[in-house]
Design a protein around this nucleic acid. Structure first.
Ligand code: SF4
Ligand code: SF4
Lengths: 168, 168
DNA sequence: GCTTTTCCAGACGAATTTGGTCTGGTTCGC
DNA sequence: GCGAACCAGACCAAATTCGTCTGGAAAAGC
């Protein structure tokens, strides 16, 4: 009953991208550093996202990834399903597999209801919503490392030095 | 992003039990036949349910399992969490593991919201709700087998011969 | 007290999924 | 042409899932 790491990294990676002006091209390595994601893994994840038309990729020197749409028009549901495939709580709710009992199965009905709730929550949350209230995980870790050098054991999480919102 | 088979079988097994008068003792084998569940697997699942105080077990000849509470007082959430452990969409939402970024992580907030929705749906559905609208999977399979002998390809799912609701 | 029947506890293991890495390409800018 | 970057897929280790199996232990009946 967990979201996979791939989906988690995918969403986080996109917030890193969405934090920038629309259309800016960024290398995988940069995104990984900002959100603390294993480098080559994010590469693979972004490929799925590119196929789904959420990001655009540019090869060659000066290349990287950029958002294909504005962050307000990309939902978390799209991102997650692009990476993990359709959300399905059981095989009966998966289009491909199915279950012969699904007609009269009470559990199937219950799971279907729960699943719809999840899709609703993910579906109404856009990438820009997420980016707005997100503190880049990489920054958090850096701050923690610095403070441990200077002996303070717990980091107070001061006002965060995120880049100012794009004036749009 | 799936409910495990164990949880599925657990819920189905309990509907089989709840279909009977409260307190009736039934053997694993009988329950398995009714809902089409691998025999020894259900044994293990029922052990967790017994530890959680949802069913009572009786050893020896004439033994088996019985519900420890009325079906109206057992929620699907209890059943599922007794089997799978607490529902947690990510490590940050799991009490034991946790994640150091959880403070400022937007994804964590989103997953938390989705997860609460699921818990709400499961929490308000009782075992008696489920039993009420459930057609035992074993019966469905038997009917299918019979109809395939007599050549009818699709089974119409007639009014089902489930035992009448306990007059209570 | 012996036997039969049932659950109990946990070891065991095959299959699948997850969480990545690596390699050999391909495409682009220069 | 060269180097920087993505691309496609093979590959792999670890974890999890989905069970089975075995040797008990308790209860009932004789
Ligand atoms: S929940 Fe019911 S319908 Fe869905 S897979 Fe399980 S048995 Fe089949
Ligand atoms: S969602 Fe955010 S807080 Fe939760 S585990 Fe992932 S990084 Fe940590």
């Amino acid at each position: 009953m967990q979201i996979t790491r791939a989906a988690e990294y995918g969403v986080l990676g996109l917030t890193a991208l969405a934090r920038r002006p629309l259309g800016e091209v960024v290398m995988i390595e940069t995104l990984c550093a900002e959100e603390d994601i294993p480098n080559s893994f994010l590469g693979k994840i972004l490929q799925s996202l590119a196929k789904a038309g959420i990001v655009k990729s540019a090869r060659g020197s000066g290349g990287g990834f950029s958002l294909a749409r504005t962050p307000t028009e990309v939902t978390a549901l799209e991102i997650i399903e692009a990476i993990e495939g359709p959300i399905a709580f059981q095989r009966c709710l998966d289009e491909d597999l199915g279950c012969e009992h699904s007609g009269g199965c009470a559990l199937c009905a219950l799971l279907s209801e729960a699943q719809e709730q999840v899709r609703e929550v993910f579906g109404r949350t856009t990438l820009s919503d997420l980016t707005g209230r997100h503190i880049p995980n990489g920054l958090v870790r850096q701050a923690r490392n610095r403070s441990s050098e200077t002996a303070a054991p717990v980091m107070p999480l001061d006002p965060v030095p995120v880049q100012p919102a794009p004036a749009s």
